[in-house]
Lab assay of single mutants.
Amino acid sequence: MRVFPVYAPKLIVKHARIFLTGVIWVKDLGRLEFEKGRFLLPRKSLPKVKQAILELNELIEAQN
């Protein structure tokens, strides 16, 4: 598990694309899981977490 002390979308996306499957922890967002290079949306999450995951997945799609 990698810990990101700040929310840096480009760096987080780079990590997810390299490792494809895993878990990261982002300060103020908490634990985020990714599989096959995409972030998974938890069943229950705060609106800011949901927005961050959608933003990260959009960045991943834009890079493909």
Rank of each mutant, 00 (worst) to 15 (best):
R2T: 14
V3K: 14
V3L: 02
F4R: 00
F4H: 02
F4A: 00
P5A: 13
P5K: 14
P5C: 15
P5D: 15
P5L: 15
V6H: 09
V6T: 07
Y7G: 01
Y7T: 01
Y7Q: 02
Y7C: 03
Y7F: 07
Y7P: 01
A8D: 09
A8F: 11
A8I: 13
A8T: 13
P9G: 04
P9N: 02
P9C: 03
P9F: 03
K10Y: 14
K10T: 14
K10E: 12
L11A: 12
L11F: 05
L11T: 06
L11V: 07
L11Y: 05
L11M: 08
L11I: 08
I12C: 02
I12D: 01
I12S: 02
V13R: 02
V13M: 06
V13T: 09
K14M: 14
K14Q: 14
K14S: 11
K14P: 05
K14F: 09
H15W: 07
H15K: 02
H15S: 03
A16D: 00
R17T: 11
R17L: 13
R17F: 09
I18S: 10
I18H: 14
F19E: 15
F19I: 14
F19Y: 11
L20H: 09
T21V: 08
T21R: 13
T21N: 13
G22C: 05
G22F: 03
G22R: 02
G22S: 03
V23H: 10
V23G: 03
I24W: 01
I24S: 01
I24Q: 00
I24D: 00
I24E: 00
I24K: 02
W25F: 08
W25H: 05
W25A: 04
V26M: 01
K27V: 15
K27Y: 15
D28G: 15
D28R: 15
D28N: 15
D28A: 14
D28M: 12
D28F: 13
L29C: 04
L29V: 12
L29F: 08
L29K: 03
L29D: 01
L29P: 00
G30H: 02
G30D: 02
R31M: 06
R31K: 14
R31S: 04
R31C: 13
L32R: 00
L32I: 13
L32G: 01
L32S: 01
E33Y: 15
E33N: 15
E33R: 15
F34E: 00
E35T: 14
E35I: 12
K36W: 10
K36G: 12
K36Y: 09
K36A: 12
G37I: 05
G37R: 05
G37M: 09
R38L: 10
R38H: 11
F39A: 01
F39M: 03
F39Q: 02
F39R: 01
L40T: 08
L40C: 07
L40K: 13
L40Y: 06
L40G: 04
L41A: 09
L41I: 11
P42V: 06
R43V: 06
R43W: 04
R43S: 06
K44G: 07
K44E: 06
S45Q: 09
S45P: 09
S45N: 12
S45W: 10
L46Y: 13
P47G: 10
P47H: 12
K48W: 10
K48Q: 07
K48A: 07
V49N: 03
K50M: 08
K50T: 07
K50W: 08
Q51I: 09
Q51M: 13
Q51D: 08
Q51F: 11
A52T: 05
A52M: 05
A52Q: 04
A52N: 03
A52L: 05
A52F: 04
A52Y: 04
A52G: 03
I53R: 00
I53A: 06
I53Y: 04
I53W: 04
I53D: 00
L54R: 14
L54E: 06
L54S: 09
E55M: 07
E55S: 08
E55Y: 12
E55Q: 09
L56C: 03
L56V: 03
L56D: 00
L56E: 09
L56P: 01
N57E: 03
N57H: 02
N57T: 03
E58W: 09
E58R: 13
E58P: 00
E58N: 10
L59H: 05
L59A: 06
L59T: 05
I60N: 04
I60P: 01
E61W: 08
E61Y: 10
A62S: 11
A62W: 11
A62K: 09
A62L: 12
Q63T: 12
N64F: 05
N64Y: 04
N64K: 05
N64P: 10
